[in-house]
Design a protein around this nucleic acid. Sequence first.
DNA 1: CGCGGGATTGACT
DNA 2: GTCAATCCCGCGT
Length: 194
Amino acid sequence: MQSLVPQPLSPSFYQRDPLEVAGDLLGKKLVREYTGQRLEGVITEVEAYFGDDDTGSHASRGQTARNAVMFGEPGRAYVYLVYGMYWMLNVVTFPTGVAGAVLIRAMQPLRGQEWMEQLRGRKAPLADGPGKLCRALDINGELNGWDLSLGQGLWIEPYQVPPLDQIQAGPRVGIDYALPEHRDAPWRLWWRPE
DNA sequence: CGCGGGATTGACT
DNA sequence: GTCAATCCCGCGT
């Protein structure tokens, strides 16, 4: 029987280079409280985004109303809408004032699958993409800026540490508009459990 | 104040 | 493989 006591990662975990945080998030457990239930999954795919120097990042052209959370406190959720219909979940990294974030792209469901199926309106795969993941966990713009260290509503906690030889890296998805050096950088990381 | 486009997905040829 | 959905925002006028 696993513990239901929340063990949220502290802000210091997030207050680092987004690429380092991204790697350390693989294998962690993402927890969402939904109508008194717990929806949980293991994080299996992430992408790191930087600030001024990263033309693939929302923060590359400075702070705006949309991306303000990326410039704020580490350990907050940065949630935004793409294509008018899909929410994206990121965690804010770097110290306050320095833009950085990690996009949570996929997870392997651990608990509450039946609720996720209901939220998604279909069966597995339930969270093998960033938009699907947010749909499966009922994550939307109301959670933009949410403090992930509270251990309430939405947080991340330790779970597994993937073997290094099971971690792969490649270019980030959907940023063809970025300069080649950023578009092609291997800042997407994923874990295929064996 | 109008317009272009997006850190995606699912349906369809 | 192609393509539309759908809406907020960022930027140029």
